[in-house]
Amino acid sequence: MALPSSQSRGSSVSGLILTLKPQAPEALDGAGLLPASLAGLSPAEAARRPLAPGIELGECFTVQADPAAPDHRLTLRTGARRLARLGCAMDGGTLRVVGDAGDLLGQDLRGGEIVVEGGCGAYAGAGQRAGLIRVRGDAGDFLGGAADGYEGMRGGVLLVQGRAGARAGWRMRRGLIAVAGGCGDWCGAEMLAGTLVAPRCGARAGLGLRRGSLVLWECPPELPATFNDAGVAEFVWLARLDRWLAALEFRLPPLTQRARRLVGDQGAGGKGEILIVGG
């Protein structure tokens, strides 16, 4: 039997599936679990890799080959939100998480794609520079936000099919966050630039917004008084954004060019905006 696209690497032909053992320590740092660092390893070799000083990967995970996947794909079966910092500083390949991810998913991501079948904890995409994160479930607080030691999201794309918690896009600098299920309170707080798209969000959106755009379908409740209403106008870039989201196969109601523009935060320079699609 010949496996396609596997000849060059000898016996290390497949991706890996790692399944978290129930007896693994509660709070685990998953920063080392990268497709590139495990690529080409046999399950036995991967199991001997250090996960943290003094802990081998095999102590916390059962490791299987994934013959259906190319060797730059890694699948983690995690169960609950125990594994923090999954995909940290990853720069290529595909990381698939079956189950939930913990805090700091995709922190400092530089490339590649992370797909989480479940939800994720706080600070997903903190400091993300490039690459794509897809979360099928809900995300915690500070989505794309500035975790300690990191700036907010700096590039790339962060797509959440479910809901996001409070302060999504906090201090975000560049890139795209889209949340199909809507965001919690303080969405876009202190955002420096970038784009956050959600059908709706909680109270006090955009507080301290310096530049950047929140694109919403419903006007958020308790809008800060430091936003002024610019009325309704046509914004071609929303059509451009709509095409991009479609290309990313991310489902949202269609974005019309027509939107109400709220400008602020006037306390923080007044160069940001909240666009309410459809006026």
Binding site: G155, R174, G194, T195, W237, L241, W244, A247, K271, E273
Partner: peptide, 10 residues
């Protein structure tokens, strides 16, 4: 205002 959409600065 600048916007980066799909890798392009607009």
């Amino acid at each position: 205002r600048s916007k980066v959409v799909d890798g392009r600065r607009l």
